[in-house]
Simulated scan of single mutants.
Amino acid sequence: MFLSKIPLNVMSRTVRRDHADVHEMHRTLMSAFDEVDGEGAPRRHNGLLWRLEGDGRSRALLVQSCERPDWTRLPAGYAAGRVQVKCLQPALAAIHAGRRLAFRLVANPTRSTPPPGDETGKRGRGKRKPIHDPEQQVNWLIRQGERHGFAIPAATDGGPDVMASPMPPYIGRKSDHRPTARPDARLKITVLPVSYDGRLIVTDPEAFTAAFKDGIGRAKAYGCGLLSLAPDRRSPAGD
């Protein structure tokens, strides 16, 4: 696996376009990988996850992938400097039960609403709705941890050692491939991301490694799901 850091040239017209449309950003990043044969989803095949960091003139993209990208395929003038690429294998090898880590995650916490019933009593498909309440956003992450092999420890105040901060919406448009759609129809994309900063404890190394590789939550093509890890400097063991 690889982690790339792309310093962005905020004066680039293409960068500004991608910043305003997460689907265009996704397309630009996918251009750094070879086309996929077969029916598998290209993003999933390449393990592509990304996150935009910084503000103003100091912006960068963090891009995680299981295949090594070719960043020479980026549009001319897209990067403001040298793109850094590092192998994540040492980080994966260091994952073990009980490991305490600091983390950052931009995710798309949602909940499923009950599906409506028709006159026959049959249930249709429910809808996903964003979670707006900060406490429920933290609870969402705790439930993700139960599924993905980690736990959020208690902070000094007794609450979960994580902070959830709302972010501006991610928006974009993509082609509408529904049979009834016009050939030029576009679907609006709206993602309400939340930034999580905190500490975690690995409880199931296999499940946690899978979550690290695959990402957490929804909207993974659109800047959500990438889990960044660092040693927990407050851990007594220095782990």
Rank of each mutant, 00 (worst) to 15 (best):
residue 196 Y to L: 12
residue 233 R to S: 13
residue 70 D to Q: 05
residue 115 P to Q: 07
residue 46 N to R: 11
residue 211 A to S: 12
residue 142 I to M: 13
residue 187 L to S: 10
residue 13 R to C: 00
residue 143 R to W: 05
residue 225 G to W: 08
residue 130 P to D: 13
residue 98 G to Y: 04
residue 33 F to G: 00
residue 91 A to W: 14
residue 157 D to N: 14
residue 235 S to M: 02
residue 117 G to S: 07
residue 173 R to Y: 07
residue 82 R to Q: 13
residue 177 H to L: 15
residue 158 G to A: 05
residue 186 R to K: 15
residue 108 N to Q: 07
residue 65 S to M: 06
residue 188 K to P: 05
residue 191 V to W: 07
residue 87 C to V: 08
residue 108 N to M: 01
residue 181 A to W: 07
residue 83 V to Y: 01
residue 143 R to L: 15
residue 229 L to H: 05
residue 140 W to Y: 12
residue 72 T to I: 07
residue 7 P to Q: 07
residue 25 M to E: 10
residue 65 S to E: 02
residue 193 P to A: 11
residue 192 L to Y: 06
residue 104 R to C: 03
residue 141 L to D: 02
residue 3 L to P: 03
residue 9 N to M: 04
residue 38 G to P: 05
residue 155 A to C: 07
residue 211 A to N: 03
residue 184 D to P: 02
residue 114 P to R: 05
residue 119 E to W: 15
residue 239 D to Q: 13
residue 212 F to P: 00
residue 150 F to H: 08
residue 143 R to M: 10
residue 50 W to K: 14
residue 110 T to H: 01
residue 44 R to E: 15
residue 223 G to M: 03
residue 120 T to Q: 15
residue 235 S to F: 00
residue 180 T to S: 14
residue 83 V to F: 04
residue 170 Y to D: 03
residue 172 G to P: 09
residue 17 R to K: 15
residue 60 A to I: 00
residue 12 S to R: 08
residue 98 G to C: 01
residue 41 A to Q: 11
residue 208 F to P: 03
residue 108 N to E: 10
residue 217 G to W: 00
residue 32 A to F: 09
residue 144 Q to W: 04
residue 114 P to I: 11
residue 28 T to H: 02
residue 117 G to P: 00
residue 232 D to Q: 01
residue 233 R to K: 03
residue 199 R to W: 07
residue 107 A to C: 12
residue 28 T to Q: 04
residue 97 A to S: 10
residue 84 Q to N: 12
residue 10 V to S: 07
residue 104 R to S: 11
residue 197 D to H: 12
residue 70 D to T: 05
residue 60 A to L: 06
residue 76 A to G: 12
residue 132 H to A: 13
residue 114 P to Q: 12
residue 223 G to L: 04
residue 75 P to N: 09
residue 230 A to I: 03
residue 40 G to M: 15
residue 155 A to P: 04
residue 232 D to C: 12
residue 23 H to G: 11
residue 106 V to Q: 04
residue 66 C to V: 14
residue 157 D to R: 10
residue 167 M to F: 02
residue 163 M to K: 09
residue 71 W to A: 04
residue 87 C to Q: 10
residue 174 K to L: 05
residue 213 K to A: 14
residue 129 K to W: 08
residue 232 D to A: 14
residue 96 H to S: 14
residue 79 A to F: 03
residue 162 V to F: 05
residue 207 A to F: 02
residue 131 I to K: 06
residue 82 R to E: 15
residue 165 S to D: 10
residue 43 R to K: 09
residue 110 T to I: 09
residue 17 R to T: 14
residue 31 S to C: 05
residue 68 R to S: 12
residue 118 D to P: 08
residue 216 I to V: 11
residue 78 Y to D: 06
residue 115 P to I: 01
residue 157 D to H: 06
residue 193 P to Q: 01
